[in-house]
Simulated scan of single mutants.
Amino acid sequence: MAKRAKPAARHSAIAPKFPKIPAGELVTLLDFVRYAVSRFIEAKLVFAHGTPDPVAEAAFLVCETLHLHPDQFEAFANARVTAREAKQILDVIGRRITTRKPAAYLVNKIYMRGLPFYVDERVIVPRSFIGELLDSHFSGESDRGGSLIDDPGAIESVLDLCTGSGCLAILAAQNFPNARIDAVDISKDALDVAARNVRDYGLQHRLTLHRSDLFGPLGATRYDLIISNPPYVDAEGMAALPRECRAEPKIALDGGADGLDLVRRILQEAKRHLTPAGGLLCEIGRGRERLEAAFPQLPLLWLDTEDSDGEVFWIVAADL
């Protein structure tokens, strides 16, 4: 289990030795983004934590440092930056390079579907495709890609397995306004972060956190929908993780030799925890071929998103 992060240490790293930028050379937000992109490319950083490329990551860090939502960047791109703000921006750019930590850990924030969530080193940085699928395939609107349910309001219960920071459980609460939500994780540290996010969204009355190894504490409870983004990196992938990913809790990434240790258990146990009309939505990364070989009898429906192809499957209770 990952050790509890020490916030003071996260923000008091030794200042990077960057060349001093003369006053007036970097003036606007766009100037700082361009500078950051150049430094990120020069340092050969890896971008896999919610921002797909150096431009998006630079804009994210600049906006967060200036307390702006990412959607506001365009409106302020040519706005001038104060000397104090410039120093703060250069500091976070430097820390991103020298520590190689995911940007989300440096600013303690990530956005999913436009909503902000608190994160730190106790949890994996959220980047699941399930958030998009909840909008595109579970909205009840068939013109948005073919909805798999008729009415989001009819969903009365949702289970989020391996909840981490709780972001998917919170997105589920937003998408299914009449549902009670249970969210499970084996890590106490992760659940502490999730609890903070649940409080931030005022969902304590609808969303309950459980510490357990998958279905353990749930008894005979059944759900209309189970969602899960479990650890699914295989042994080869774990050995090749970039430094940025090695900053995340290993327990949140390691899926065993073939990446399917937890996925197998979820498939084997899910039916006992689904209502007759319920279904399971599960992300497994690039393990589709291995999973289909392991469960050839299951009619898995593979769902694509804007940035993924066949990394999330859907199956209804009757087919499990």
Rank of each mutant, 00 (worst) to 15 (best):
G256C: 11
H49N: 10
K17P: 05
V158S: 03
E85S: 15
H205W: 13
I21L: 11
V46Y: 05
G216T: 07
E292A: 05
L207W: 03
E64R: 15
F176D: 09
R180C: 08
Q88F: 14
L168W: 00
W302R: 02
T99S: 13
A277W: 06
A23Q: 13
A79K: 14
T28R: 02
T82Q: 01
V107F: 09
V123G: 03
D189V: 11
F117P: 03
E121L: 08
R34G: 14
A235I: 07
V62S: 09
H11K: 07
M1V: 13
F176Q: 10
S308F: 08
E248N: 09
S12C: 12
F47M: 09
D200Q: 10
F138C: 01
A239E: 06
R272P: 05
I149T: 07
V184K: 01
S187F: 02
P102H: 00
R272A: 13
T51H: 11
R290P: 02
V263P: 02
N229V: 12
G219W: 06
A154K: 03
T305K: 08
V62T: 03
G146D: 10
D254Y: 07
G164T: 15
D143Y: 15
L209N: 03
Y118Q: 00
L168D: 02
H11L: 09
A36L: 04
L320S: 11
L134E: 11
R39K: 15
V62E: 08
N78Y: 11
Q297R: 00
Y105R: 00
I155G: 03
S136W: 08
N78A: 13
P177D: 06
P249G: 07
L303M: 00
I226R: 02
E25L: 14
E248D: 08
P19D: 08
K250N: 13
D213N: 15
G287Q: 14
V198K: 00
F295V: 02
I315W: 10
E121I: 09
V125R: 10
M112R: 15
P231L: 07
A252Y: 12
A173D: 11
E248T: 05
V92T: 08
V125N: 06
L66D: 06
P230I: 12
N229H: 08
A172K: 04
A48T: 07
A173C: 10
L262N: 03
E283L: 02
Y35H: 15
V316C: 14
L30H: 15
L133Q: 05
S142D: 15
W314Q: 00
P116G: 03
P230D: 14
D151Q: 03
D135E: 15
G50F: 08
G50N: 13
D71V: 08
G50Y: 14
A43L: 03
G166D: 03
L168E: 00
L191A: 11
